[in-house]
């Protein structure tokens, strides 16, 4: 029983981490209409910035957190302005933007490697462990779960109750029609880039505290986040949440049977199978455009 509970909790934690990653990724996919794999690198970047300000320069926790988010937001805006906006201006296809995001991903990873070396870093903070009916959960892990839920709730509120959220949904549904009612697409794209960078910033700090930092971590995270959104249904809020937690659960219950090294392989295989046989995810509907 306690093993089951522990696996459940681990699954919740993993699922929360994946939804922290997937939130920004699927936001960009819905509004800016392309898959931004560089999002993973931004999360890694945020983690490293937190390490930089908190562990290396010994700033206060809250200040370091805010600085990390600020830096990540700046990076995200720079990326949008220097790369994606230029591509949009030239009417580049979503595939080109995807390839560009892969290039940015490796570029940011390499920059992290240059400045922080390949040594594994960790952000040490006081982290009490709670025992819940024989299962362990640390404070950071609990915070992650809470943050993930909060983040989704806030996103939902923004999407459906605020002016800018409505504008984003309009652009997401039909850009041309949205323009005719006076919505400026570039402003929306920029806002979306900003919001997902902030999401990456928040996620990066938490994940960086929970897991150790290494330069390539962004790749693994974004692949998992991507897998979660595919499984749930690309671009749907409920799909993203569902997919993230499903992935977290399957991974953790899966390694009950398989050697733990195969944990990542589980996600990859699931991703692959979904892409091949149900690319529109569990919540998505089969559309004509999905099939050649």
């Amino acid at each position: 029983m306690s093993v089951f509970l522990q696996l459940l909790i681990n699954g919740l934690i993993a699922g929360s981490i994946y939804s922290l990653v997937a939130a920004g990724f699927s936001l960009t996919y819905s509004v800016n209409k392309f898959m931004n794999f560089a999002h993973g690198a931004m999360i890694a970047f945020s983690g490293y910035m937190m390490f930089n300000f908190f562990s290396k320069y010994r700033q206060g926790f809250v200040l370091a957190f805010l600085l990390a988010i600020l830096c990540t937001a700046a990076l995200g805006l720079a990326a949008d302005f220097l790369v994606y906006r230029q591509l949009r201006k030239r009417k580049a296809s979503t595939t080109i933007q995807l390839i560009a995001s892969l290039a940015l991903l490796t570029m940011i990873n390499s920059c992290i490697l240059l400045f922080f070396s390949s040594d594994v870093r960790s952000i040490k903070i006081a982290n009490p462990v709670y025992i819940v009916m024989d299962a362990r959960i640390t404070m950071v892990q609990a915070v992650i779960i809470l943050t993930a839920i909060l983040m989704m709730a806030v996103l939902w509120l923004v999407a459906f109750k605020t002016k800018i959220g409505k504008a984003m949904r309009a652009i997401s549904d039909n850009k041309e029609v949205a323009q005719t009612v006076g919505i400026n697409p570039e402003k929306i794209y920029l806002s979306c880039a900003l919001i997902s960078s902030v999401l990456a910033g928040i996620g990066g700090v938490l994940i960086g505290i929970e897991q150790n930092l290494y330069p390539q971590m962004g790749v693994m995270l974004i692949v998992k986040g991507f897998a979660a959104t595919v499984m749930g249904g690309l671009g749907l809020i409920q799909g993203t949440i569902f997919g993230s937690y499903l992935l977290g659960m399957v991974e953790n219950f899966g390694i009950w049977y398989l050697p733990s090294g195969y944990k990542d392989a589980i996600s990859f295989v699931l991703l692959f199978l979904f892409l091949l046989f149900r690319p529109y995810g569990i919540f998505g509907k089969k559309r004509r455009e999905d099939v050649a």
Partner: peptide, 12 residues
């Protein structure tokens, strides 16, 4: 994979 839209082939 080839029965999917272009983007999905890329992802697969």
């Amino acid at each position: 994979a080839l029965r999917l839209k272009k983007d999905y082939l890329a992802l697969v």
